[in-house]
Design a protein around this nucleic acid. Sequence first.
DNA 1: AATGAATGAGTGTTCATTCAT
DNA 2: GATGAATGAACACTCATTCAT
Lengths: 215, 215, 215, 215
Amino acid sequence: MTIKREIQASVKDEQLVEKRRNQMIRGAVSLFKEKGFHRTTTREIARAAGFSIGTLYEYIRTKEDVLFLVCDSIYEQVRNRLSSMDLERGTLESLRLGIDHYFRIIDEMQDEVLVMYQEAKVLSNEALPYVLKKELEMVGMFEKLIRRCVENGELDISNEHQQLLAHNIFVQGQMWGFRRWALQKTCSIDDYICLQTDLLFSGIQGFKKQMEVGG
Amino acid sequence: MTIKREIQASVKDEQLVEKRRNQMIRGAVSLFKEKGFHRTTTREIARAAGFSIGTLYEYIRTKEDVLFLVCDSIYEQVRNRLSSMDLERGTLESLRLGIDHYFRIIDEMQDEVLVMYQEAKVLSNEALPYVLKKELEMVGMFEKLIRRCVENGELDISNEHQQLLAHNIFVQGQMWGFRRWALQKTCSIDDYICLQTDLLFSGIQGFKKQMEVGG
Amino acid sequence: MTIKREIQASVKDEQLVEKRRNQMIRGAVSLFKEKGFHRTTTREIARAAGFSIGTLYEYIRTKEDVLFLVCDSIYEQVRNRLSSMDLERGTLESLRLGIDHYFRIIDEMQDEVLVMYQEAKVLSNEALPYVLKKELEMVGMFEKLIRRCVENGELDISNEHQQLLAHNIFVQGQMWGFRRWALQKTCSIDDYICLQTDLLFSGIQGFKKQMEVGG
Amino acid sequence: MTIKREIQASVKDEQLVEKRRNQMIRGAVSLFKEKGFHRTTTREIARAAGFSIGTLYEYIRTKEDVLFLVCDSIYEQVRNRLSSMDLERGTLESLRLGIDHYFRIIDEMQDEVLVMYQEAKVLSNEALPYVLKKELEMVGMFEKLIRRCVENGELDISNEHQQLLAHNIFVQGQMWGFRRWALQKTCSIDDYICLQTDLLFSGIQGFKKQMEVGG
DNA sequence: AATGAATGAGTGTTCATTCAT
DNA sequence: GATGAATGAACACTCATTCAT
């Protein structure tokens, strides 16, 4: 169950709040993508959402609320889509599939992830921990995936290695988005998944060894 | 050879320009660290640099110039410190040492790297490519380090793997800074270097294999 | 006969209008008391009155109407309570009693009087004269009280003195409210009535004279 | 010596600050007079002062600062002009002259006094006490004037009567301004001074008595 | 070369009022 | 007759930039 950090709205009809906020988020993401949070005005957000500035403020209290809503929504989407992963099987294949799945989600949500990635830090001291918490939850999913492999005897790495590995996977996903200017020039998402999986599973010495074995 | 992107100054005396800009950068970094680029005012930068707002504008043309100067200076520092790496030896040990060296630099320059990392994106379309270019140069250093290993027969991985590996190393360095809220709670820089090196060199199956061998 | 300044309502049922407006006034007085007219929003008034903002506007046309209603209501209350005074007897004792009565009313309605006193001026050029007229009516009551004394031979002061005296009494009543920060620290309403009556009746030389007589 | 409540300015040249603030006060008084503090915008104040909105905010920090400056300046003016009063002589004549002097000052500064009188209450909890303190200082001047008369044997009234009398005089001065709509229709300032002095000195029974004596 | 007072476009936010349901 | 979502003009305040001294 998710801890809800409520953003206050003046409007009472909860369905309407949901609907209007979704309009708002959609508009805001594309604006933040284009010019960043700080260079986007609330008026622009309202216009992009399809309503007036007055109406915008019926559904939030401060501009930062919009950013929070955006971040929250993106995490929620990623997590929802990630939830179809099988965390329990505990085979290397399921880990490989999990990574594949996650990287493809990021690929499809590149813009959103980039926005969140670049702007989340401007969230206030009140809101930021909540967002970071969500991030840790997602990292936790990879940790679980890995731990089950260890428990299954498919993998033998220390607890610390497991944790860092989970972080690496998580960051390598985001990296596909935030370093697209470098990576996506020479590389498709399929390539990327393939290459990263190689490195992840075999390490650089793995190649050497295989070579030696093969040679 | 480095492409110089000149920031125009009204003042002619180049030594003075250099000196004033260094004051400016020092002040700006600590301000950006504290409150980010957008929440820092030019007046604050001037004050932190030790001169008046009018003088500030004798050495730059826009606020963004300050950010550029800051990013440029940070990259330059990282690169300078990195330049003591031996890129040519082409042994796994030299690669390991290179990573160790780089990660420790990042650790010491955490604040600066974080600033640059978080704010660089607001640079205009004119300045950003220049900064990204510098980043690629640094990635290139790791690529070279790796390529020499391959040429030396110490490693046998494809060109694509080499490139991605270089990116991974570069990002894992930055990651130590920008994910400090998660990583640095349980882990020293020594631990981090050790763990990342393990994963990098052996991959996760490496561990398994060793186990099998050992078992 | 009272001149009625009609505030337009959309609702036809006059009893309902009366009822709703009373709710509104009660809510508004306590809000104006707390934060003044300008810092009180129509939404707050509606909420304090127990109905919606839409309903509020069924019974008034502008926010200023609320202020008018409030002022009107307060004057009406003061006047009603004042109406038990005996204006006709024409003795110094009845004047003394009238003052006593009036000062005690003000004391009990301090908050309301303060509100009206401080906010009435923001009424538009259309509504203000109406309110001032009511005030003059009340001053007129004291004038009558005094005049009857003169007619009775109990007092011998000129017409101008009578008028100014009436104003003084009226203002000294309000003064108990609007200077409470100074007066009510060291003085009860009983004290205040007593002291003011002394000054009013004897003047400052009166004391001297009595002393001389007594000495 | 006056306790200074400093309003922060960005501009350092103190003479310039003084000059600009005087421009500001002059403009603000006439605007507040016309439409009250709340209906006056900061842009209007800036324009009336003869500079831009940006410049206005170089000399104050909030709109309320303007009101404080206005109130402070008015009190200071009244007090300065009042300072020529001889507080020490302790004769009834000097008291009479003091009142005459004070009432004439109020008459000349009617607009200013009215503004301060009507708007001072919106000052924040921080600034209001400071203004009230100044008011009490002025009341204190009348108290002193009266006390010296008592000490001189010219008057024999209790401490409490002295205090209230001082308040009455102070309020009757202001009253000439804030009730001008009623008083100034039938009465010049000379008349007003004369009538109020009569009532003050003789009380209403004084008239009667004189009559009896005279009769 | 250095200063800092002046500028005003631009920002986030509020709130009286309307009107479709 | 009652509701409350929608509106947008209006507001206080900020800050990058300029330029006369």
